[in-house]
């Protein structure tokens, strides 16, 4: 003990003091602050979300995806929409992605198939920090909700096109597109709320 350890202690204290002063002197640089801001958990979630959306759009824009998936999704919507409209007494028929009767016809094209809204929701659930089983349940329930919503939108627009043709454009280009995105966001908030409740409930039971 004695002299050697006292010297060591002194050296250690000096080093600590110089470190503190250097910390005080050097403010974090702009780049470092930007890095810290970007690496915030919520920002990381957003970055992951962007990355997934870019991946989705890269896939979505490919000829293969358009010809083999999007095309059939549109046809499926047209057929299902036509069934619902027939139940409602509109006597419609389909040809590829077109629903028509003697009075009116609509075609389900890109943007009307709800795939992008569905992608936003699925990507957001996928990157949300929770259990995988909860993600699967959320994705499944959300997908069903958004598909049903899009079907409702198609049927609704067809009926508007027949009975209120003057407001068809407003409903088609402004109201329903926005509503679909906002309801996708709401579905996501419901999922987050459900997930937290579910986790809290399990914790309290345990």
């Amino acid at each position: 003990m004695g002299k050697k350890s006292r010297n060591k202690n002194k050296q250690f204290k000096n080093a600590e003091a110089s470190m503190q002063s250097s910390v005080r002197l050097h403010k974090p640089s702009f780049i470092l602050r930007a890095k810290i801001a970007i690496l915030q958990p919520t920002n990381l979630i957003l970055i992951k979300f962007f990355a997934l959306m870019i991946a989705f759009y890269a896939l979505w824009a490919s000829k293969f995806f358009q010809e083999n998936i999007i095309k059939y999704i549109s046809i499926a919507y047209a057929k299902t929409g036509s069934i619902v409209l027939n139940i409602l007494g509109y006597k419609t028929m389909t040809a590829e992605d077109i629903i028509r009767n003697d009075v009116f016809s609509i075609s389900i094209k890109n943007g009307c198939d709800g795939v992008e809204g569905l992608a936003i929701f699925l990507c957001a659930v996928l990157i949300f920090p929770t259990k995988f089983s909860n993600k699967i349940k959320g994705m499944f329930a959300g997908a069903i909700f958004l598909i049903a919503l899009n079907l409702f939108r198609i049927v609704n627009l067809y009926i508007i096109g027949i009975h209120f043709p003057s407001i068809f454009d407003v409903m088609h280009e402004s109201v329903w597109q926005v509503l679909f995105i906002v309801l996708s966001l709401m579905a996501l908030l419901v999922f987050i709320s459900w997930d937290r409740k579910n986790e809290n409930l399990k914790t309290s039971i345990v």
Binding site: E173, Q177, I181
Partner: peptide, 10 residues
């Protein structure tokens, strides 16, 4: 327009 709306949302 859907992409633009999504961009606005982001």
């Amino acid at each position: 327009p859907y992409f633009g709306l999504m961009f606005s949302l982001i």
